[in-house]
Design a binder for these strands. Structure first.
Length: 253
DNA sequence: AAAGCTTTCAACCGCGTGGGT
DNA sequence: AACCCACGCGGTTGAAAGCTT
């Protein structure tokens, strides 16, 4: 909370907003709507910059803003969206109705970021041209998984595996490489080096799935139909990566 | 109880983008 | 094409609150 001050050059007030200022902004916007942030403060009788007004409205005063603690479901969405999108807070916020980008960013730095360092995971690039896809696998039968051997029963000891095209149903003559990063014995991260479709992914999954005796198909289909990730599949030529983890259940987040 | 340290989160700043001229 | 302006975004800051010693 910043102490209210007045900018000597502009005469505009800075720092935390008073209840009275909030009320002035709310009543102006509810009466006249948002038409021009830089002009509005003057008409609303506020000694604030348009930028300050916009921020206050967007992050605090706007109707339907959800406040309070983040639910586990919301945290999961943030965490996995961050794997997919990187620090694109506005994009992540669009997946969480009622939460602002600022709030999500704060929550990430305060609570969620350490999940990455705990797992030696490297955050995704913020390069917007990078269209890789991330997904989460959450097996239903936790107890059985916990009894699985530490190392999965498929051989992915090489850091980079190359599969011939017959592994991929729709790859014609190209070789598809799959880069595998084992985070530890219960989490894996895969990058598909060349474009793959959902069908490719599904087929690949069936070939390599470590939990094939655990009704994986249902889980897999759930995962692919999860609306959080639907938009990632719009482009059939988009390179994919995916992330397999049962940390969520094991560690309770 | 008090001092010092850490965490939280509202708010600020700078920069990029897009639309208008 | 070049400039201006408004807006939106993401990184950073700093005061208050909470916690520890």
């Amino acid at each position: 909370m910043r102490t209210p001050t007045s900018d000597i050059k502009t005469g505009l007030k800075k720092g935390s907003w008073s209840r009275e200022e909030d009320q002035m902004l709310i009543s102006y916007i509810s009466r006249y709507g948002i038409w021009n942030w830089s002009q509005m403060p003057r008409f609303a009788g506020l000694s604030r910059s348009g930028k300050s007004c916009r921020l206050r409205w967007m992050n605090y005063l706007k109707p339907n803003i959800k406040r309070g603690n983040f639910s586990k479901e919301e945290e999961d969405i943030i965490f996995h969206s961050h794997l997919l999108l990187g620090n694109r807070w506005a994009a992540i916020a669009s997946r969480l109705p009622g939460r602002t980008d600022n709030e999500i960013k704060n929550h990430w730095h305060a609570h969620l970021k350490k999940r990455l360092t705990d797992h030696n995971m490297v955050p995704k690039t913020t390069n917007q041209n990078d269209k890789r896809t991330s997904m989460t696998f959450k097996p239903d039968n936790v107890e059985e998984i916990l009894q699985q051997p530490a190392n999965h029963n498929y051989d992915i000891s090489e850091s980079c595996l190359t599969f011939e095209d017959d592994i991929f149903s729709s790859s014609s003559s190209t070789t598809t490489s799959i880069e595998h990063h084992q985070i530890d014995n219960r989490a894996d991260y895969f990058d598909l080096g060349s474009p793959g479709t959902v069908d490719d992914l599904q087929y690949f999954w069936q070939q390599l799935c470590p939990f094939e005796n655990l009704e994986l198909e249902n889980n897999h289909l759930d995962m692919l139909s999860n609306p959080i990730f639907q938009d990632s599949f719009d482009d059939p030529n988009s390179p994919c990566s995916f992330y397999i983890s049962d940390y969520d259940i094991i560690q309770g987040f």
